[in-house]
């Protein structure tokens, strides 16, 4: 049976199709105004990749902040649960998962089965979320994808005074420095377990990953491949339970 996981995020919607523990197809579109419509589009993308028809899908489970908005879903799971399941599926030794998305950051401690033991979340403040890096990319007039590589080319670390995204926009022009602290604190709140995996769209930014390793004083930090899809994978896995 084909299981679909849909992660309805603040900025993008990710879909993963799974069969017998294998990923068959993926789809990603901007959330836009109508989340349900966008989710359909992402689903079609994934079906196209998997060369399957809509009828092949046996069960649909959603996650993400818009997880209740999809009327044709069979079930939904929390973001923390989906992230832990997805991360442990990809990296069985993962015990701490850091998920930095467009509008929130969360740290999750889990066991070997992907069960959530503890988690902390920041969703009220744009500092330490993808919105921060987007604003910085705009202020610096560089494409978002280049912000991370660009930051790695810097020769010195200049700490920024401003924590707030709005204040940082006015301060940033001469400074290129990735933001790590929110994720860092979330980790300290849940406690550090040896195997740590970074997921969520911001994990694409190598500047953030480097800076995070330095601040958290950790070397064994893994970045998930296709980090933004981990939640959707977790949702698809939850469908099997």
């Amino acid at each position: 049976m084909i299981k679909a996981g849909i992660d309805v995020g603040a900025k993008t919607i990710k879909v993963v199709l799974m069969e017998d523990g294998k990923i068959r197809g993926k789809g990603k579109v901007l959330s836009g105004f109508d989340q349900e419509e966008s989710a359909k589009e992402a689903l079609e993308q994934a079906l196209m990749e998997a060369q399957l028809s809509r009828e092949a899908i046996g069960i649909i489970v959603t996650t993400g902040n818009g997880r209740k908005a999809i009327s044709y879903a069979t079930d939904d799971v929390t973001e923390a649960r989906a992230a832990a399941l997805g991360a442990v599926f990809l990296y069985p030794s993962a015990r701490t998962v850091i998920d930095v998305g467009a509008e929130e950051a969360r740290a999750i401690k889990c066991d070997s089965s992907g069960k959530v033991l503890d988690f902390a979340v920041n969703e009220k403040c744009a500092a330490g979320s993808g919105a921060f890096t987007e604003a910085m990319a705009r202020a610096l007039e560089v494409p978002l994808e280049e912000l991370g590589p660009l930051s790695l080319r810097s020769t010195q670390t200049i700490p920024m005074n401003a924590q707030c995204t709005v204040f940082a926009e006015s301060e940033v022009v001469s400074l290129i420095h990735s933001k790590t602290q929110k994720a860092d604190i979330a980790v300290r709140r849940v406690g550090l377990e040896p195997e740590l995996v970074l997921i969520g769209g911001v994990a694409h930014n190598p500047g953030f990953v480097e800076s995070f390793k330095r601040t958290a004083e950790l070397d064994n930090v893994r970045t998930a491949e296709d980090p933004e899809f981990v939640g959707a994978i977790g949702a698809a896995l939850a469908a099997g339970e």
């Binding site: 509008e103 009220k124 744009a126 707030c164 995204t165």
Partner: peptide, 15 residues
């Protein structure tokens, strides 16, 4: 305004 609306729910200026 015709009537006082609910305050915006986001604290963060960006949101």
């Amino acid at each position: 305004v015709d009537e006082e609306p609910q305050p915006v729910s986001s604290t963060c200026v960006v949101f």
